[in-house]
Design a protein around this nucleic acid. Structure first.
Length: 244
DNA sequence: TCCCAGGGGCCGA
DNA sequence: TCGGCCCATGGG
């Protein structure tokens, strides 16, 4: 076993896919390049880590974290576009708008009735605590107390909107690292996060990039039905032998 | 037609 | 605690 297999996997993924630059912030998108359907050719501009996030960008990352729950990102983009068109990429507007209007805008992202309720609760929390200001990150436990915010969503908000060095664990993380036999598959969320933090040190920029690379790799190769033949991690992966 | 997608809440054993 | 079910749209 490698001395630090966690770092090794990151290096291999980064070398293969390049920087992902998450979080994709819709409101920072390019204003040019709409195609004939009115969609953006390059829908999202990825903010760079050196860039200071505005309160509205921070809000957008927070609601995007909720909207992407068990949902394809392309569908989240449609919902974000609806929100923007309706002037709802704004916490005050989300709080004030009738929930029926909000849920209709969210329809493309699925679970729209639940998500409308979640966004109203989250917007109220962020606004009342003055949490959209940089340097005033909410406590993880307070995020977790919100209806509709679980560990992955809370950590996603903390990492990508507030630069807090927490590691985001999702279904892809469990799938990839269980196949690599770095996890057994029975570990709990916080235990998995700790494994990554211990292996990497508390480095928020690294955590952002690593999680993004995990998503990229799981979508392209380490799918439910994996495409092992040209996988960059196959030398490290016992799962490859089974498939072959 | 079926499976899957960057989860989370709720309920009964 | 833990599985099973519910929420729901859109692409492959």
């Amino acid at each position: 076993m490698e001395k630090n297999i966690i770092k090794r996997v990151f290096t291999d993924l980064l070398e293969s896919y390049g920087l992902q630059g998450w979080w994709p912030v819709y409101s920072l998108r390019c204003t040019e390049g709409r195609d004939s359907r009115g969609y953006y050719n390059q829908v999202l501009t990825y903010y760079s880590y050196s860039e200071e996030l505005s309160p509205l960008s921070r809000f957008e990352i927070a609601i995007g974290s909720v909207l992407t729950q068990n949902t394809a990102w392309t569908n989240v983009e449609r919902a974000l576009e609806n929100l923007e068109s309706a002037g709802l990429l704004d916490p005050d507007a989300v709080i004030d708008v009738p929930i029926s209007i909000l849920s209709e805008a969210l329809r493309p992202s699925g679970y729209y009735n639940q998500k409308a309720k979640k966004l109203k609760i989250l917007a109220a929390f962020l606004l009342e605590g003055n949490y959209l200001k940089m340097g005033n990150a909410p406590e993880r436990k307070d995020l977790l107390n919100l209806w509709g915010v679980g560990k992955e969503t809370a950590d996603s908000i903390l990492l990508y909107a507030y630069d807090v060095p927490v590691f985001v664990v999702d279904a892809y993380t469990k799938r990839i690292f269980t196949r690599l036999k770095i996890l057994t598959g029975s570990e709990e969320y916080d235990e998995i996060a700790e494994i990554f933090i211990n292996g990497l040190g508390k480095d928020s920029a690294l955590f952002k990039e690593y999680h993004a690379l995990i998503v990229k790799h799981a979508k392209e190769y380490c799918r439910k039905n994996p495409v092992c033949g040209s996988c960059v991690l196959k030398e490290l992966c016992s799962f490859y032998d089974i498939i072959e």
